[in-house]
């Protein structure tokens, strides 16, 4: 049996150390956080992002008659390198159809800088918020569903950015 000697002095010292560490951590939060060797964190799917998703929307020049721009970037988690040729699916409730209808869906590919841009009909408020849906689901990276909300229903463009991690 080990005899643990806990006298008042050692308790006070221990307490003091804990206290000092606490003060230090709250004053300099960077001190005890491990260095960000991982770099850019992957984008998490947003709640409700996958609603009314249809698998395999075709790559199109433009959804419907256009007039509204959905754009964004696709990068790799960690080093943030732009990912070219990635397929992004886009859908929304627009002036030309409801969210679940096939004509409201389309897909596009990112360019060499990892950027994508697809013209689509004007998004209108549905279920109380003017919002769009985007998906990356090609399998090479983990699937991500986004649901960005427009600041105002009058806006004619919307952005969404993907940071993908290997599947």
């Amino acid at each position: 049996m080990t005899n643990v000697a806990l006298d008042r002095r050692s308790l006070l010292a221990a307490g003091g150390t804990v206290l000092a560490t606490g003060v230090l951590v709250s004053a300099f939060p960077g001190l005890l956080v491990p260095a960000r060797a991982d770099g850019l964190a992957p984008t998490q799917s947003m709640s409700g992002g996958a609603n009314n998703y249809r698998k395999g929307a075709a790559i199109v020049e433009r959804i419907g008659k256009g007039g509204f721009w959905m754009s964004g970037t696709v990068r790799r988690a960690g080093d943030g390198a732009p990912l070219a040729g990635q397929r992004i699916q886009i859908w929304a409730h627009t002036v030309e159809g409801q969210e679940h209808e096939p004509q409201s869906h389309g897909a596009t590919l990112t360019d060499k800088d990892g950027k994508f841009r697809l013209e689509m009909p004007q998004i209108i408020p549905i279920f109380g918020q003017p919002h769009g849906h985007l998906a990356y689901d090609s399998g090479e990276f983990k699937t991500v569903f986004l649901r960005p909300v427009m600041r105002s229903a009058k806006e004619t463009s919307l952005e969404a950015h993907f940071v993908l991690q290997p599947a």
């Binding site: 709640s47 409700g48 009314n52 279920f127």
Partner: peptide, 12 residues
């Protein structure tokens, strides 16, 4: 799906 999210308190 949007209504299910709302009823289950998981709506955005």
């Amino acid at each position: 799906p949007d209504m299910i999210d709302a009823l289950t308190y998981t709506s955005p």
